[in-house]
Simulated assay, not measured.
Amino acid sequence: MAIGDDLNLMQRHRNDQHSGKILLLISEDWFALSHFKPLIATLREFANEVVIATRSSGRFDELEALGARVVPFDFRRSSLSPLRQAGTVRSLAQLIAQEQPDVVHVVAMQPMVLSALALRMAPRCRVVMHLTGLGFLGISEGMAARVIRPAAFAALGGILGRPDTWLLAENPDDRAYLTNNGIKIGTRSTVLGGAGIDIEAYPALPPPTSTVASTAFVGRIIRSKGLETLAEAARILRHDGTKITLKLYGKIDHDNPDAISEAQVAQWQREGLLVWHGHVSDVRDVWADTDICVLPAITREGMPRAVLEAAACSRPLIVTDVPGCRHFVRNAVEGYVVPAGDAQALATALARLVREPNLRVEMGKAARERVLSGFTLEHVQEGIRSAYSALLAQHNA
Rank of each mutant, 00 (worst) to 15 (best):
I260Q: 01
I260T: 02
I260R: 00
I260M: 04
S261Y: 01
S261I: 04
S261G: 05
E262C: 02
E262G: 11
A263S: 05
A263H: 03
A263M: 03
Q264L: 11
Q264W: 02
Q264N: 06
Q264K: 05
V265F: 02
V265N: 00
A266H: 15
A266W: 14
A266G: 14
Q267V: 09
Q267C: 10
Q267E: 06
Q267R: 12
W268T: 01
W268V: 01
W268I: 02
Q269G: 09
Q269W: 08
Q269L: 04
Q269A: 12
Q269M: 12
Q269H: 11
R270Q: 10
E271S: 11
G272I: 12
G272Q: 06
G272P: 01
G272T: 09
G272A: 11
G272W: 00
G272V: 09
L273K: 07
L273F: 06
L273I: 06
L273Y: 02
L273S: 05
L274I: 13
L274P: 07
L274R: 07
V275P: 09
W276T: 00
W276M: 00
W276P: 02
W276V: 00
W276S: 00
W276R: 01
H277R: 14
H277I: 14
G278E: 06
G278I: 04
H279D: 15
H279A: 05
H279T: 11
H279F: 11
V280A: 06
V280E: 04
V280L: 04
S281K: 11
S281E: 15
S281W: 07
S281H: 12
D282Q: 05
D282C: 08
D282M: 08
D282V: 13
D282N: 08
D282P: 11
D282S: 12
V283S: 03
V283A: 09
R284Q: 13
D285R: 07
D285C: 09
D285G: 11
D285I: 13
V286Q: 03
V286G: 04
V286A: 10
V286H: 12
V286M: 05
W287F: 15
W287Y: 08
W287C: 04
W287G: 02
A288L: 15
A288K: 06
A288V: 05
A288F: 13
A288I: 10
D289Y: 07
D289C: 15
D289R: 14
D289M: 09
T290N: 07
T290A: 07
T290R: 15
T290G: 10
T290M: 12
D291W: 06
D291N: 14
D291G: 07
D291R: 14
D291Y: 05
D291I: 06
I292Q: 05
I292Y: 11
I292S: 13
